[in-house]
């Protein structure tokens, strides 16, 4: 009886944190107008959304894909083409990009899912490199020069603001909440259980009647379209895109790193990972980037090694450790 009460309390605390977070996050622009801090908040939201998109296929379904920069790039080019080449609003481009990314994901993943372990990982590397180089020589989408945004009227219609970062922040928050609620919904839904069953034992799941290929393909398509949405936000924020910027292994690694550092296969992991990694990256760049020659990246690389080696379960592992220690002291007090 006692333990059940305690469990209830911990659940209450986590819900309270969520509600608190959701009520505080929209207020942040009211506290600070500092554009660097705003930039960091936007990046945290963007990276958390990217990581959560990857989490669907990588964390919950157990397929470690290094190919998400392809979908990110397709989303970015969808919005970019709509604005730069066709001179319209980016919204239609964003939707087309998301659909296209889902289709591409299904087409390239179907043969790849036959591969296992490192063979799958390296196949996704290979696909990123093929797309990267293919886009570099494809003149219709701007080739190696990329797409440069013209300066057009600001507002929601054009998804573009010139003087303030606040609207970008709210849109990033919206995307973040959207992807998080999708994943939250999946966690309790039948499909989410199927995904976790495929991750934990594909043969066992299949013997119970789960169509593992269909589950994996659906999860991949969903994950890819979410990654494309993040990509189109990135290009609207950045106002410039070229192939190495979006379709590189480094971008793919960001998807994976943030999720793994936060805790893959958990709802809060991607947010935790982004909340730690983005400030680390941006502040090391701000403090040491000016010294010349990548001192920031040297330190960043070292930090990645230390975090990965010391805490393989991610930030969420640290939280659980603290929770356990807290429980222990409580028990001792009772005794």
């Amino acid at each position: 009886m006692v333990s059940r009460e305690k469990k209830l309390k911990i659940k209450d605390i986590s819900w309270l944190t969520l509600v608190l977070l959701l009520s505080v996050l929209p207020l942040i622009p009211g506290f600070t107008a500092n554009s660097f801090r705003m930039h960091i908040m936007i990046l945290i939201m963007l990276y958390a959304s990217m990581a959560q998109a990857w989490n669907i296929i990588g964390g919950y379904c157990g397929q470690v894909s290094f190919g998400h920069s392809v979908f990110f790039g397709i989303g970015a080019y969808g919005a970019g083409m709509a604005v730069v080449t066709y001179g319209g609003t980016p919204w239609l481009g964003i939707i087309i990009g998301m659909i296209l990314a889902a289709c591409v994901a299904v087409i390239i993943s179907y043969p790849c899912f036959k591969l296992s372990g490192h063979y799958f990982a390296i196949a996704t590397f290979a696909i990123v490199e093929i797309f990267n180089r293919g886009f570099l020589v494809w003149d219709w989408i701007g080739g190696a020069l990329g797409l440069d945004y013209p300066i057009i009227e600001e507002g929601l219609k054009n998804f573009m603001w010139h003087n303030t970062k606040t609207p970008y922040y709210y849109l990033a928050l919206l995307i973040f909440v959207l992807i998080f609620s999708i994943v939250r919904w999946l966690e309790g839904h039948r499909f989410g259980y199927y995904m976790r069953a495929v991750r934990d034992g594909q043969e066992t799941a299949e013997s119970l009647g789960v169509n593992s290929t269909a589950i994996k393909l659906t999860a991949m398509a969903l994950s890819a379209s979410m990654a494309a949405l993040c990509g189109s936000f990135f290009v609207q924020y950045n106002l410039r895109v070229d192939p190495p910027m979006v379709m590189s292994l480094d971008t793919s690694m960001k998807f994976v790193l943030v999720t793994i550092l936060g805790g893959s296969g958990t709802l809060a992991g991607p947010l935790l990972g982004a909340a730690v990694l983005v400030p680390l990256q941006e502040y090391t760049r701000a403090f040491w980037g000016g010294l010349g020659g990548g001192v920031d990246l040297i330190i960043f690389g070292l930090l990645i090694i230390i975090i990965v080696v010391k805490q393989p379960a991610g930030m969420i592992g640290i939280l659980q450790y603290i929770q356990k220690a807290f429980k222990k002291t409580k028990l001792q007090e009772v005794k």
């Binding site: 372990g117 994976v256 790193l257 010349g292 990548g294 040297i298 690389g301 070292l302 990645i304």
Partner: peptide
């Protein structure tokens, strides 16, 4: 296997930028 892969990715980043520096 992902742990070792990410750790060596960090190492690669460190070595590359160290030589750059």
């Amino acid at each position: 296997g992902l742990v070792a892969l990410l750790a060596t990715f960090g190492l690669a980043m460190f070595l590359k930028n160290f030589c750059m520096n």
